[in-house]
Design a protein around this nucleic acid. Sequence first.
RNA 1: GCCCGAGUGGCGGAAUUGGUAGACGCAGGGGAUUCAAAAUCCCCCGCCGCAAGGCUUGUCGGUUCGAGUCCGACCUCGGGUACCA
Length: 851
Amino acid sequence: MTRYTPAETEPKWQKAWDEAGLFAAKRDPSKPKYYVLEMFPYPSGALHIGHVRNYTLGDVIARYKSAQGFAVLHPMGWDAFGLPAENAAMERGVHPGDWTYQNIAAMKDQFRALGLTLDWSREFATCDPEYYGQQQAMFLDFLEKGLVYRKKSVVNWDPVDMTVLANEQVEDGRGWRSGAVVERRELTQWFFRISDYSDALLSALDGLDNWPEKVRLMQANWIGKSRGIEIPFHPVGDGDPITCYSTRPDTLRGATFLAISPDHPVAIDLAAHDPAIAAFIEDARKMDTTEAAMEKAEKKGIETGISVLHPVYADRHLPVWIGNFVLMDYGTGAVFGCPAHDQRDLDFARKYDLPVVNAFHLPGDTTDVTDIALVPPKTTEVVYVDHFAGIDIITSQEAIDATIDYFEANALGVAKVNYRLRDWGLSRQRYWGCPIPVVHCDSCGVVPEKKENLPIELPKDVSFDRPGNALDWHPTWRQVPCPKCGDAARRETDTMDTFVDSSWYYARFTAPQAETPTDRQEADYWMNVDQYIGGIEHAILHLLYSRFYARAMIECGHLPEAAAEPFDALFTQGMVTHAIFQGFAADGRREYYFPEDVALRDGKAFRKTDDTEVEIIPSAKMSKSKRNVVNPVAIIERLGADTARWFVLSDSPPERDVEWTDAGAEATSKHLARVWALSDRIARMDDTDAASGADDALMREMHKAIRDVTLGIESFGFNAAIAKLYAFTNVLMKSKASHAAQRKAVMVLAQLMSPMTPHLAEDIWGHHGGAGFVAQAPWPVADESWLVDDKLTMPIQVNGKRRSELLVAKDAPKAEIEAMALADEAVQRALAGNAPKKLIVVPGRIVNVVI
RNA sequence: GCCCGAGUGGCGGAAUUGGUAGACGCAGGGGAUUCAAAAUCCCCCGCCGCAAGGCUUGUCGGUUCGAGUCCGACCUCGGGUACCA
């Protein structure tokens, strides 16, 4: 009897796979290709259990597709630029690059221990000059095509990280990474023209059938398309009109004032001569910068003294106010206020004593709005106070559209579609990022670097003794000749947002050593990513940027047209969670306990030090401070990679969170040991026994297992696939079939398990004389003829409730089933001598007796 | 506020198109083995009930011979998002 010893066998198989070059992706036009990609990790230095789940999910797909005969590309790299490296540099005095590459080396070993089918020959880090040099080359291409530009703009400034953030990176007024309250600053920045693609990015979402609906919706909301109209309001007296944007021109009837942004040109003009207005604008800008609680901030305004004419009722003069709630960079920076039908406008009107005029009422109710704005859903019937647009009964999106058309037809305004999506600001005032390859020259202005000078490498000799951008105070790095005139000039010190790095790495994996950003032969063959796997947290930022980037790369010829949507299918996996053990220290402070410091009894937890019961908070996100982080390296050392892989796949569906429990991991390990023992027992069986009656039953179960596991993997139902594997294993353990049949069954079991537990599968395969690696064996196919039983049990219902069952031949005629059903004891009892009202027989399915 | 998603035993969850609800696992209970324990193996395990039987997929209603699955209303939880005009 040999024992299951993953600590010995797992490294052995990993080495054997490596030496056989099993996972090196090869372009093979004779095979269909399959590109499976998990979102590449940030090299923090330590593998997280969430990584184990993410990469195991992808590995199951990769191994399965490979067994199906696909040429599989399954690469891995490192999203290696970013702030943690600079923080480490500041705290520990190491260079960000050294820190990063050390982390990569450590993490790579941990990845290898998982037995993933990764093609390490394609590995790169985004901080490799070979990678970011190509990114710089592409930046120059984008510049030439006008896909990237420079403008002065008010930006989100993170005062802790001392850098600019994109709108997408501001959450609740705070920096997504630092959590610091974001300030507004005016800086000259580089921008990608992602907003030019608003409509393309929105409409293409419809075609992404294999993306989660949720992600598509989130992106659609983020792009935020709205159809409306720009309406000019002419001033009373002379002057240029002020144009307002509205998606509800039907409420123009109720307009009583105009509000313009503090950044509106009219406001700025007035400020030059009016100190009160200047002070207000100053104040409004400051307010924006300070409080994250600006959600609750007071709506404030100041009168400009200007009045405009209502475009329809010329006798109505509307005062123009400057409002701190009007955004300059959405629409036109000016709105008309309709207090009766907008709560914000109503609050503003009440505060400054502006008139409130209803544009419509609910039918049968002509009371005017007082404190609560009348905002019925778009489908509600309303009665307008006036009939100027020809639409005067029902409001609906169609009615609003008709109003817009009417306005346009009568030269009252111009229809306009607006998007919430803004251009993507990519400048970051950081050292550890991809340098933007331009030079500032006093005579030539902003000059792109020459491609032959690429990569513009980061200097190694930098210090991090003060916050901010180390490139700014490097003694010489900035000083370069102008690529155009040759005079002394200054290199741009801003680097690119790290989201740029991750917006095209998937394309680079198709030819990581190419001298150009991509190799079109390779890219044309491997793109698109057939299955992309990652966390839902990237639903907007990374996935939207990548979709834009692919389009931009196509414009520059770096990708084929067909790669506009680079990810054919997307899967977002859930987190791995763990219970928190929470109690109170002697001084009454709340404290948390590591799992190893807690004893579990009868579903309760007790502190080991003094046996006090502590609270169990189930299924919580892992966090170091809550002491509920599980270390995958320790798990792999103790129980093996196969146990970790199997556990994270079992129980919960992959899109949901799965709770890690030590008991569950132990149980998994025991199960794998049982499977190994089963294999061992079969290997030692006397093989002289003839085929027995039990053989057919076992073969039938085996083919069902092939069918069900295959279906489970195909549909991302890995937990269900694993349940079937358990069931099949249980059958095999009890089987009295011949050695030949059992040997066949256990080898198929090994094949079916191989995507999840590849090392154990190789052990079993080899144990039974399987040829080569199980990793290279073609996926088993279920034989239909084994899947049909000649007899089946049919449930009998009485009035829809199951009362009995019937064993019938699979092709039994309906009349025979009816007769058998009526003769059934339970049915007889229910009928009590009466005839049934109705008898429903669905052959092969069910019998229902209606009384 | 608006937009999504989800509610099934003590727990995680399973259930092609409406057709035997609770697969599989965890936890729990009982037993075998053992001097004892660990390990291993066997049995039980939705709820009520001695039983016959009844009830059961968040709640209420509907469609249907038949509803976890379809329709309507509501409740709870989770996620996203917002001075966007």
